[in-house]
Write a protein that binds this DNA or RNA. Structure first.
Lengths: 156, 156
DNA sequence: GTTAATTACTTTAAGATTAAAATATCTATA
DNA sequence: TATAGATATTTTAATCTTAAAGTAATTAAC
């Protein structure tokens, strides 16, 4: 392979290494400090951004995971009274999932802690550098996604 | 929270988004083109870097996953004849896991394809930019890890 | 208005993952 | 040389994940 190819491979491995490190740290913190998991946090975060709730299919679309995946996580959150399923008027197939008041209160605490953990672990990066690097990553992500559209125009 | 905190949170979300995107793409490719998975690929990659093999505990250490995790993946790879467990002379507790000749041949193909997929999806980034960004990420990772050592000196 | 196709969601089967418990072996010490 | 503690691995129980199959309800075609 070319040296350019090796450079991109190395970039990917760095990206993956850092992301796994931070990701693992966040999972540990959620488990120890809130007895919860990242997938549960992700579901509650999505619902928090939509106070009126989301249909199961919308939720799995937003989170980019399978339908069946969300079913199981919603089941467990519902058992604990953090979310509730509400029937959709006029469509008996669909269900809206939304945070309960208890879920809202719990998530507010988790979200504040989550932001603080990230601020803490990434404290070595200045705010300016963080903005710069975020902008670069947007460019990289766009290049990657455009690449896919060129290869498979069906996703237009 | 401060604006700096928000900037770092946004950086993290970008990092996570890009990594998940590429990660998902690689998993798809491994599944479709080689009928395998990323964890299996990771195990074989680690063994490939150590032709004499690795003890189960060394392997889980290198991959930073639990012992029990490696046990299951090794079981499945062994069933297919891609890896083999070799007893360790002088320590009947331990087992060395290593690639079989078939595993070596299979991994060589997967590794070449893997590098090509990454080169392809990150093709929008020049080799120079890739090197630059990789260097920045090393700095970020070091800052993150130093932060942890300061917080918990037991890991010295 | 019945039938066919589509849509929304759940269930199932398999693998990945962890922490904690269980096994088996080794090492050091009394 | 017993035995107590440490080490290497596997097993177990729980959650997460997907793809594929299954259920129920809606929409479209005829």
């Amino acid at each position: 392979m070319t040296t350019a190819s090796k450079d991109r491979l190395r970039l990917w491995l760095r990206l993956l290494g850092l992301t796994r490190h931070v990701d693992g740290h966040l999972r540990d913190k959620l488990r120890v400090e809130f007895k919860t998991t990242l997938p549960r946090f992700d579901v509650m975060a999505a619902l928090s951004r939509h106070p009126e709730g989301l249909k199961m299919s919308q939720l799995s679309g937003v989170l980019r995971v399978s339908n069946g995946n969300v079913t199981g996580i919603a089941d467990r959150l519902a058992e604990e009274g953090l979310v509730e399923r509400v029937p959709v008027p006029g469509d008996r197939r669909a269900m809206i999932l939304r945070l309960t008041p208890a879920g809202n209160a719990e998530f507010a605490q988790q979200a504040a802690a989550h932001e603080a953990w990230i601020n803490d672990i990434l404290h070595g990066i200045s705010a300016a550098d963080a903005r710069l690097m975020a902008a670069q990553l947007i460019a990289v992500a766009q290049a990657a996604e455009n690449k896919e559209k060129i290869d498979d125009p069906s996703h237009a």
